[in-house]
Amino acid sequence: MLLEIEDLSITFDTAKGPLSATRQISFSLEEGETLGIVGESGCGKSITNLAIMGLLPDTATITAKKMIFDGVDLQTIKENDFRKIRGAKIGMIFQDPMSALNPSFTVGFQIDETLKIHCPEMDKSARGARALELMHQVGIPAPAERLKNYAHELSGGMSQRVMIAMAIACKPKLLIADEPTTALDVTIQAQIMKLLKDLQKEYQMAMILVTHDLGVVAQNADRIQVMYAGEIVESAKSKVLLQDPKHPYTDGLLSSLPGKKATAFRAPLPSIAGMVPDLRARPNGCQFNPRCEFADDKCKTTLPSLEHDQARTLRCFHPVGASV
């Protein structure tokens, strides 16, 4: 097991009182596996990843039963040792590649910097060669010239490729891709996803793919985990989850995907009414109950627990398709 997270809860201290961003998140990841994390904005996907990276601000309090990466306990690790994991064993890429690159330094400098801290045994020329190799691997034409470019001289897709090159520079065991294609053109999205998949195979990395686009995870993830209001509501192998969603929220997400369940041509696309709850004023019971068509009195008072069976994990009293 490469990554094991058990009962991870993150609370932020805010001026308006404590905000529980995630509650009791548990999941694990095998080496080389791809986990898709799906959910609307503000449901705790990115926060969970930042917690794994140890990059949450000081206002955040993390409690977890277990947070183990590659045999290392991330809760007790010292900051200095954590730094040796970040960027080396765990690489991370972000949503907006244009602003994720430092505008004041060349691309080459920024790649070189990663190699310099994590691979002290490499000398300058070895690092230069590796940077060139990386640029080539992520499919950047004329890599030698591009290394001398600044972020503002690159397109969005190109910047994301550079970010990927930087993230995989030290051959990490885990790549966290936080909405890697959201800010890109649709045609570029497919290219970047293919690149990530190819690199994953080549480097034998595990990957956490965060997105709110079910289409992206459907094609790329081995397993999908759906999050709502900072909780996991359903998790299963991609195929199982997509073909037979049990949680009303998952079902709603799938229905609102164009071309999946839309029945008639030009029929209005179904949507899930309402909004993600304010995390400072969570509803009682199931977090999804105010928006759920199946909700009854029990849902409004009691939070369903996560039930595991062979195929899936589910947090719901009234799964879709179950007899009432």
Partner: peptide, 26 residues
């Protein structure tokens, strides 16, 4: 608060280098 500072941290840079190089330059 910029994204590239988060990137610098995610690369495993020290706090000092993040502030003195990546932030200060901008």
């Amino acid at each position: 608060g910029e994204d590239y500072i988060r990137t610098a941290k995610a690369k495993g840079l020290s706090r000092y280098r993040t502030v003195a190089v990546h932030a200060l330059r901008n």
